[in-house]
């Protein structure tokens, strides 16, 4: 039992990491990863939603009639997303301003709905929680690494929390602004996918 829980948890970190392996959840990934900090904030918010929606969907899986299951999942997911939105407004307002519209859009993030439909709706509570947490952390890792790459190349800084960079490439570095613009997101993601495939190739 414990072993399978670990397996459900770790598959989201590498073998089925949402952004790079399943290539799901691209909208927030491309839009908010201008800095590493934004990636972490978005990832943590999504992890919270994933964990609790997975737990609740799996708890209610025998009660929810299969014909209206998607509607029920969306209600559950939307509830947690709205809670996250209130919490971020109350405690991390600056981050909320930066992420803006993409927080409410977690409702339609296919990673969250995908896990509810593909996993939590068919499994018991503990594996579903492990799956949600693993997928969430994997998503956070993917977003923050993409954010870090784009920020380092595009702005020459690295911001992890609180808006002040913890690392700055020397003054001689001329930032490659393209990387923090929208098209840079596609190029950055492409490079990361390429790298992942190279590493994963046997």
């Amino acid at each position: 039992m414990a072993q399978s829980l670990v397996k459900e948890f770790t598959k989201g970190l590498w073998a089925e990491i949402p952004l790079f392996r399943l290539v799901l959840g691209l909208c927030p990934a491309l839009a908010v990863t201008k800095t590493c900090e934004n990636g972490i904030g978005m990832g943590v918010a999504t992890t919270f939603v994933l964990l609790f929606s997975n737990i609740l969907v799996s708890m209610l899986r025998n009660i929810i009639p299969s014909k209206v299951r998607i509607a029920c999942y969306i209600v559950i997911i939307a509830t947690f997303v709205t809670i996250v939105e209130f919490m971020m407004q109350a405690y991390t307002y600056e981050l909320f301003l930066k992420l803006g519209i993409f927080i409410p859009l977690i409702v339609v993030n296919c990673v969250v709905l995908g896990r509810a439909e593909a996993f939590a709706g068919k499994n018991t509570v503990l594996p579903s929680a492990a799956d949600g947490l693993g997928m969430g952390i994997g998503f956070t890792l993917a977003l923050s690494s993409l954010g870090a790459v784009r920020e380092l190349i595009g702005a020459g800084t690295l911001t992890v929390w609180g808006g002040t960079p913890i690392f700055t490439i020397g003054h001689g570095y001329i930032p490659f602004h393209f990387m923090v613009e929208a098209p840079g997101a596609f190029v950055g993601l492409g490079m990361m996918l390429c790298l992942m495939n190279l590493i994963g190739k046997k």
Binding site: V68, C72, V75, T79, T82, I83, F86, Y91, Y93
Partner: peptide
């Protein structure tokens, strides 16, 4: 029944969370 109960519970829960976080949000704004 399931959909009605689910939406009612989630609506109630959100009202509670909103009421709890409102003063803090106002302060942040």
């Amino acid at each position: 029944v399931v959909l009605t109960v689910l939406t009612a519970v989630s609506g109630g829960l959100l009202a509670v969370v909103k009421a709890k976080t409102e003063p803090q949000i106002e302060e942040q704004v």
